[in-house]
Write a protein that binds this DNA or RNA. Structure first.
Length: 429
DNA sequence: TCTGGGGTCCTAGGACCC
DNA sequence: TCTGGGGTCCTAGGACCC
């Protein structure tokens, strides 16, 4: 066996109907029941069980548009329960880490595995089947596995495994002939990185299938599109351009925003909401062990309403030096709100964004900047807040966040926190 | 009445510098 | 009369992803 030529091979493991499957995990009575999971505010459908898909509920539709269909067929709806999904996700990922040496957690329900060199030792399809069985047994979640020499092809292999039942949920796409056969069957919009805008432009050039895109000269694509699309073309031809990234890269921005459960017309309520978002964003920032120098606040009315006057505005400000102190950002955010707020609109959504991050202690202050007062004291207070809130769940908060939060989002069909709250742990009888 | 949230990367264009 | 050009930094906006 030669070690000289180890071929790159990726597997993409993707959970089937992830949020819907999580909701069913602790409800065996719902095994064959059609159900959907809703976005925040119970606004639209973000996940569907296979039964709900069959009944024609489309991904992303607003709930009110499918209410009638759901009533007719007895389709259940659940508010999204991210604490539950994150916990199940973590179990899936740690199971994968036991099966493969290098794992990239790509999203809450997907991971890439590096299988390079494994071809000589295992039958890759068999390996995929093992992964599938193992996750089914250990976590109770069904996954599909796509195997190929590039991430983009592995995505397509996974798509094939999901689409065609007779694959048994595993597709090995390492052979060139199989690659071309599959690519010929798939519309170009199915390719990872080709969204609706790009696929329209490609179709205008006569490129309709994934195979036609693969067979277009990369130089031509570079000229008419971008380096990103060029990379996609190369990846479709089995040339791996996107590496496995095991270490999560450090964040570059943190956003906290929400559509309101009810429209806001009162500035005081808006100030409460902004304060809440600042508090969440800063907590995330401290969790990342980062400091930020830039703050943006934005507000807007609903873009869907034609009777409400539209208004959308954002403003940014740079701090004198990076910080992760909630109080500092709170003061700045409320100043920005003063500048942004216009009376008379029915606001539907607002948010804050932190950016321009530094590692604590790395920032070089200007020569004439004032020396920082009481170094360390603020950090301790913030740490204390985070610790108390982690232990006792929202014990202390800033007065400006408000105690009632009448504007906060709707979650009227929430499942219990089966795995993350002792009070709600499932009982076996 | 009711339409998510949180990210990334790339490009174009302007300002500014030498 | 002819009136440079290349580099860098920043920002806004567009496109994509799950």
């Amino acid at each position: 066996m030669s070690l000289k030529h180890i071929e790159t091979v990726f597997a993409l493991v993707d959970c089937n109907n992830f949020y819907a499957s999580c909701e069913k995990l602790f409800r065996p009575d719902l095994t064959d029941t059609p159900l959907v999971v809703l976005s925040n505010n119970d606004g639209c459908v973000v996940a569907r069980s296979k039964e709900a898909k069959k009944l024609g509920v489309k991904m992303g539709v607003p709930l009110f548009q499918v209410r009638e269909l759901m009533r007719q067929h007895g389709i259940l709806a659940f508010s999204s329960n991210y604490a539950l999904y994150a916990d199940i996700s973590q179990r899936v990922m740690s199971t994968l880490e036991n099966l493969a040496p290098r794992v990239e957690v790509y999203s809450i329900d997907e991971a890439f595995l590096d299988l390079s060199g494994m071809q000589q030792l295992h039958n890759l399809t068999e390996f995929g089947v093992t992964v599938r069985q193992h996750i089914q047994k250990c976590v109770g979640i069904t996954v599909c596995v796509g195997i190929a020499p590039s991430k983009t092809l592995a995505k397509l292999a996974n798509h094939a495994a999901k689409t065609w039942q007779q694959t048994g949920g595993v597709v090995d796409l390492t052979s060139k002939t199989r690659q071309r056969k599959l690519l010929a069957l798939l519309p170009v919009a199915e390719v990872w990185g080709i969204g609706s805008k790009l696929s329209k432009r490609l179709q205008q050039l006569g490129i309709d299938t994934a195979l036609q895109l693969a067979d277009t000269a990369p130089e031509f694509i570079r000229l008419h599109f971008s380096v990103v699309v060029e990379r996609t073309v190369r990846e479709l031809n089995g040339e791996s351009c996107l590496a496995l990234e095991e270490m999560a890269p450090t964040k570059q921005q943190i956003i906290s925003s929400r559509a309101f459960g009810e429209r806001i017309t009162d500035k005081g309520q808006m100030a409460e909401a902004i304060s809440e978002y600042i508090s969440r964003a800063c907590k995330k920032l401290r969790h990342e062990q980062q400091q930020a120098k830039q703050l943006t606040v934005f507000l807007r009315t609903s873009p869907f309403s034609d009777k409400d006057a539209p208004y959308s505005a954002s403003k940014s400000v740079a701090l004198e030096r990076p910080s992760s102190d909630t109080r500092l950002f709170l003061a700045k955010a409320l100043q920005l709100l003063d500048a942004l707020w216009v009376n008379g609109y029915r606001y539907a959504k607002a948010g804050v964004m932190l950016a321009d991050f530094y590692d604590p202690g790395v920032y070089q202050p200007g020569l004439f900047d004032e020396p920082r007062m009481q170094k360390g004291a603020d950090d301790k207070l913030m740490q204390l807040m985070d610790t108390l809130n982690a232990k006792h769940c929202h014990t202390i908060w800033f007065a400006s966040q408000g105690a009632k939060q009448e504007w906060s989002m709707k979650r009227e069909m929430l499942s219990p926190a089966y795995t993350t709250n002792w009070q709600e742990i499932p009982k076996v009888r």
